[in-house]
Amino acid sequence: MADYKILPSDSKHPIAKSAFYELLEIAGFDITDIQQEKSKWEQITKEVVGKNILFSPYQALAPDELREIFQTQPPVSKRESIYSPSITYEKKSYDAAYLALNEAEYTVSEKYVENKFVKDIEPLLEAYSESEIISKLKSKYSIYSKDKFYPLIGDIFSVLGLNCEISPHGVNSRRWDAVIKAHDDSLPIEIKSPTEELNISVKAIRQAVENKIILQSRKSIKNKRHSSSLAVGFNLPANRAEVTQLIADFKKVFEIDVAVIGIDYLLKIAIKCLRNNHKLGFDELSRKTGIIND
């Protein structure tokens, strides 16, 4: 990047564009419409640098420079969403969009997990019903910022028998907030704490898709092309039709599956796993798409 910064603007711009579209192509995006321009940018890159270079402009360059390179404008006002579903879709039944993890997806756990979440829930397992436990814990977790909520999500997935790692803050090479690992695959997780947003929004869905693209592009962790990307938050989406349609659109256009999980359901399956000494199968979770719920 030091060499890039000293280049003249007429060279930097095509180099940045070449690198950006190369990342998209590696991630499986169809860039046929821009291929001719990309070839010109690659030629300039080879003439200036001597070879093609690969980096992410949106992580390496300042916003003002990005706007100059890609000819974009900053937003003039904030809005709740930049995605508007059709009116006809909102009238559809949501039943088909909801998925449940069934009995066949659980197996007997071979080891006992102990973490902060287990210490929270263990005293409640014998004395309270499932709904009471969820209510008590959800009330406790409702004030958690991301510093507490992200590790909590990691702890819950660990209780389910999954190998979940929380990404350190500020590490651009690990854009995802957490990742569930298997020996030959992984599931990136976008997490939203209740202090960030009470209900999972379309923003979380877009970021879950971005996580999948970056993971596929950088190949820093083993990740199968068609395994899911997860969005986990405090409450399920308030506008479920909007989120469901966006998930369907990403699936249709980019073949990326996004599964959405609220903490109520995570707590429910955690209670089931702890009470019955069960664990959740990675393969079943990796094939989910849509809103996971009862």
Rank of each mutant, 00 (worst) to 15 (best):
S84T: 14
N276D: 15
E165P: 04
Q245H: 14
W41Q: 04
R240P: 07
V202G: 04
W41M: 01
S145M: 07
S193I: 11
G262Q: 00
A259R: 02
G281W: 03
I34A: 13
I82E: 14
E242G: 07
V49S: 02
E190R: 02
K268L: 05
I269G: 02
N211G: 05
F250C: 10
I82Y: 13
N223Q: 13
E90R: 12
G233M: 00
P168W: 09
F250V: 11
F20Q: 09
I82N: 14
S173F: 08
I134A: 02
F157Q: 00
L267M: 15
P123L: 04
E42M: 08
I34D: 07
A62C: 09
C164E: 02
P123S: 03
I53D: 01
I263K: 02
I263Q: 00
L54Q: 15
K251P: 03
K181I: 10
A127Y: 04
N115K: 06
H169V: 14
Y112L: 13
P8E: 08
K268P: 01
V108T: 12
E80L: 14
A2T: 10
L66C: 14
I31T: 13
E242M: 11
S167N: 11
Y112C: 09
E190Q: 13
D64V: 07
P194M: 05
K78A: 12
H278C: 08
F234S: 03
A16Y: 00
N211I: 01
E122G: 04
E90C: 13
P123F: 05
N163M: 07
A97L: 06
S229N: 07
L137C: 11
V179M: 09
Y141C: 06
I134M: 04
S131E: 10
D30L: 10
P75R: 12
N293I: 05
R225V: 12
L124Y: 10
V202T: 14
Y83S: 06
H13N: 10
N223S: 15
R174S: 14
K146D: 13
G281E: 13
K222N: 15
D249S: 11
Q43R: 04
F149A: 05
L124E: 05
P188S: 11
D264R: 06
I87R: 05
R287Q: 15
K219R: 15
S18T: 08
L7W: 01
D283Q: 10
E130R: 09
L24V: 01
L285E: 00
A96D: 11
F29R: 12
P57I: 05
E80Q: 14
L7F: 04
V118P: 00
N163W: 06
I269K: 01
N102I: 09
I133V: 03
E22R: 15
E190Y: 04
D95E: 11
S84E: 12
E37Q: 14
I247M: 03
T107A: 02
I214R: 09
